[in-house]
Amino acid sequence: MEYSRILAGREDPLPVFSKVVEALENFEEFPFLLEPVYREASDLGDEELDRLRFGLVRLQVYADIHRYEDMEAAQRMKYVAAVLERMLFGRLLLEGEEAGGKQQCC
């Protein structure tokens, strides 16, 4: 799967995306990549932080769209993206979304 392309959208990938891709490809390493991602993100400017956040949102949306093709991969994508977004930005941009894919009603 082209995780880097999903994260970058139609722009050039940010260097921090490589650590996110590493977490997705080797899920067991994700806990050890949290701090390096956080440190790298703390050096980003506002525009790059926006691109990072939208990359994480794009990954969650992609996972939702393709969840029935490979449920395990979709769950990994959602989990990694949601944990990183909460860690870096304090909350999910898509407020009604939870890491498990449940929508809050009304």
Score class of each variant (00 low, 15 high):
residue 60 Q to P: 00
residue 21 V to H: 06
residue 50 D to T: 13
residue 49 L to D: 09
residue 77 M to V: 10
residue 70 D to S: 11
residue 51 R to V: 01
residue 39 R to F: 01
residue 89 F to K: 09
residue 69 E to G: 10
residue 82 A to R: 03
residue 25 E to Y: 04
residue 74 A to G: 06
residue 25 E to C: 10
residue 22 E to G: 05
residue 21 V to N: 07
residue 48 E to M: 06
residue 33 L to R: 02
residue 47 E to R: 10
residue 43 D to M: 07
residue 76 R to I: 13
residue 49 L to K: 15
residue 62 Y to E: 15
residue 29 E to Q: 11
residue 91 R to K: 12
residue 65 I to H: 09
residue 67 R to M: 10
residue 86 R to T: 10
residue 47 E to W: 04
residue 21 V to A: 11
residue 92 L to S: 07
residue 61 V to M: 07
residue 42 S to N: 10
residue 96 G to T: 07
residue 69 E to M: 14
residue 22 E to W: 06
residue 42 S to T: 08
residue 83 V to Y: 05
residue 18 S to E: 13
residue 91 R to T: 08
residue 55 G to R: 02
residue 71 M to F: 11
residue 77 M to E: 15
residue 19 K to Q: 10
residue 93 L to C: 03
residue 50 D to Y: 10
residue 21 V to R: 09
residue 52 L to F: 06
residue 73 A to R: 09
residue 81 A to N: 10
residue 48 E to S: 13
residue 54 F to V: 08
residue 42 S to A: 14
residue 84 L to K: 04
residue 71 M to T: 12
residue 78 K to M: 15
residue 21 V to T: 14
residue 41 A to V: 01
residue 29 E to R: 12
residue 87 M to I: 11
residue 54 F to I: 08
residue 17 F to R: 01
residue 64 D to A: 13
residue 94 L to Q: 10
residue 19 K to E: 08
residue 81 A to S: 15
residue 27 F to R: 15
residue 63 A to E: 03
residue 23 A to M: 08
residue 32 F to S: 00
residue 50 D to Q: 14
residue 46 D to L: 06
residue 57 V to R: 07
residue 74 A to P: 00
residue 90 G to Y: 12
residue 53 R to Y: 03
residue 81 A to W: 04
residue 30 F to W: 15
residue 26 N to C: 10
residue 95 E to G: 05
